[in-house]
Amino acid sequence: MPDIRLSVNGEAIEESAEARLTLADLLRERLHLTATHLGCEQGVCGACTVLVDGVPVRSCIRFAAACDGQAVQSLEGLEHDPVMEALRAAFTRHHALQCGYCTPGMLIMARDVVLRLPDADPARIRLEMSGNLCRCTGYLGIIEAIHAVILARRG
């Protein structure tokens, strides 16, 4: 069994795990970080999106062993991140969630859009978020919330 050393939300982690353990299951089952949700388990729905070395990736199709030496941030680790604080407030204000299952992945991806694309308009936001599925909201509130944060940061 591979020994895996990685950092999760700033904390050094050492785990011995089967090779087939995914990063998502490492986070949820071993570390009890359950903000990361599993939807499709084939990289399509986006619910499991986390940051690896600072960029969003699908944790359901990434083997934990392949993350050795990398820095992982799940939604829990972004609690006090200023962009995430603004996004959480905007998601509440714009009714950007109902059941909440997709929300952790939506927030991780939304933060990436806000930071990477400061000029994004609603059409671009819609395109960028197309890899995250929501079955409740019809997406409008999500797009509006992200756009509101982008506009507020533009000042």
């Binding site: 087939r20 995914t22 084939q42 990289g43 399509v44 699908r58 359901c60 083997f63 062993a65």
Partner: peptide, 20 residues
């Protein structure tokens, strides 16, 4: 792993060994 990962999760691919 963005194609191999989904295929292995779906067990459409079942390699006995991965070389990363």
């Amino acid at each position: 792993g963005q194609s191999l990962g989904p295929m292995m999760n779906l067990r459409a691919a079942r390699p006995s060994q991965l070389v990363d």
